[in-house]
Simulated scan of single mutants.
Amino acid sequence: MSQVKGFFKGVSAELKKITWPTDKEMKSYTAQVLIFVALLTIFFFAVDLVISQVINLLG
């Protein structure tokens, strides 16, 4: 039981060392991720469209 207690004390101590992002930083990071995901979606949609058109032309 003391090992479990020690583990959670260690976890608590490590969590106190973390520098958490501010609300402004978090909103910025979230926007960056959403924009990146949207760009990747558009890219893969375009690649899929081109590949399907090539396959249709060959078939």
Rank of each mutant, 00 (worst) to 15 (best):
G10H: 04
F44I: 03
T41H: 03
F7E: 13
S2Q: 14
K16Q: 10
V47I: 14
S28N: 12
V33Y: 09
T41F: 15
Q32A: 06
K27D: 04
S52R: 12
K9C: 06
L39G: 05
K24S: 15
W20N: 03
Y29P: 04
P21K: 08
L49E: 03
L49D: 07
I55M: 14
G6T: 08
K17S: 07
K27S: 08
S12G: 08
F45E: 03
V37I: 01
W20M: 07
F36Q: 00
F8T: 03
V37Q: 03
A13R: 13
K24C: 02
G10L: 05
T22G: 05
D23G: 02
Q32R: 15
I51D: 03
V4K: 06
L40Q: 06
K9L: 14
K27F: 13
I35S: 09
T22F: 07
G59K: 15
V11A: 12
V33W: 11
K17Q: 02
S2M: 11
T30S: 01
D23T: 11
I42L: 10
Q32V: 11
L58Y: 10
A13I: 08
Q53T: 06
Y29Q: 13
Y29I: 14
L58N: 07
I51C: 11
I55L: 11
E14T: 11
A38R: 06
I35F: 07
K24Q: 09
M1D: 01
F36S: 06
A31E: 10
V4H: 00
K27R: 15
A46L: 14
F7G: 09
I51N: 04
L57E: 02
M26K: 12
L34D: 04
